[in-house]
Design a binder for these strands. Structure first.
Lengths: 205, 205
DNA sequence: GACGCATCTATACTTTAGTATAGGTGACTA
DNA sequence: TAGTCACCTATACTAAAGTATAGATGCGTC
């Protein structure tokens, strides 16, 4: 019987997924509420076949938690799970050695398939990942930006004003306005806040 | 047999909770992926005893979705569920006529209790609301925010303008400005972009 | 009842953001 | 050489954001 350790900080989500997996398949599912808890349990027993980590739970610190888990238990399969992450995060995770990536938008049936997939030694990442607009704004938008516009966007992502950006880049405020206006158009958003949020979502800065 | 309609946009979360409830108790659980879907299903059949709405799913618009549901189906019990909300939101929800508030940090067993509680006509809101990470995540700057300011912040996190926020919350633009000004001060930031970035960084929305 | 508090509105104002247009420079290229 | 493009600046404007005061309502508490 495959042993799974599921780590998620939302008790309700974690427990019901665990219960579901145990009823519909012959899985033994242990649970943890954060990364430290999960690592602790792994230390106790060495029979865990698959470790599922929530991307946003305490201790994860982005993909740092993935590294910790892989480093400590190189043999164990490790999958990431997230309710908010996008394709970029998924790609980065897979590139850093994750065995699977499970968006919470997955159906319960697909989850079982994904787990079987990973347990059999395959890598799993869903195709139908990005929804329409996520796909559309994938990365084409950002590649259109000029060097200066990119620098401006970077400053926007700290929430700076045009005046502050002008000082930092040593140009006039009007010029900053121009760059902002152009990059808003290229990104297809309507104000600086949306631009900053979009860039952050894509983990550009 | 009590009929429950569970609406959550995360397929995985929704399906597993539904499956769990159907196996451990004698509940009939229907599901929906957003508020409109849920309202549509309610129209079809009038035998739903409890409607569970995810606070952050499409169509909810803060507590507006709760109002819509209560207005359309005054007899049906309505409970809110959220993974990120804090006590203020919960209080506001209960004040606006919700029959229960279910944080996702609840244990699966407690969920069943909460549902039974609500079905029997009682109001349910957990005492140990902010324990552990719920507290850690929601405290500090954000706990100072009022319910309305929190809703405003949520809209800021989509990059909306004051005018759009005013329309969504059905208040005047001046009022939105007031809320924005106050929440900026409480969060210790100097503009809306910084506020949005801060909230996103803390995974509030 | 008096008080604090959250909420909403109003008026009035300053500052910032964003748009529009025009023009100048240097680099690279057909 | 003429054309294109990124970049910078300028003037001028409209729209939006943010600040400051003041007043009104309702709700719960002491």
């Amino acid at each position: 019987m495959p042993n799974i350790l599921l780590a998620d900080d939302h008790d309700l989500v974690r427990d019901t997924i665990a219960a579901y997996l145990e009823t519909v398949e012959d899985f033994k599912v242990l649970t943890a509420a954060n990364l430290n808890d999960a690592m602790e349990q792994m230390r106790g027993l060495d029979a865990i076949d698959l470790l599922i980590l929530d991307y946003n739970m305490p201790g994860m610190n982005g993909l740092e938690g993935l590294d910790r888990a892989k480093a400590a238990y190189p043999v164990c399969k490790v999958a990431l799970m997230s309710g908010v992450a996008n394709r970029d995060v998924a790609n980065a995770a897979m590139a850093q050695g994750a065995d699977g990536f499970i968006p919470k938008s997955l159906t319960a049936a697909s989850l079982v398939n994904a787990i079987k997939f990973v347990l059999s030694g395959e890598k799993y990442m869903p195709f139908d990942f990005g929804t329409a607009q996520t796909e559309a704004k994938a990365d084409g938008e950002f590649s259109k930006l000029s060097a200066r516009e990119l620098q401006t966007l970077e400053q926007l992502c700290i929430g700076l004003s045009n005046k502050e950006i002008a000082r930092n880049l040593d140009i006039q405020e009007v010029t900053v306005k121009l760059h902002v206006k152009n990059l808003l158009a290229k990104l297809g958003v309507s104000n600086r806040t949306q631009a900053a949020l979009l860039a952050k979502e894509r983990h550009l800065f």
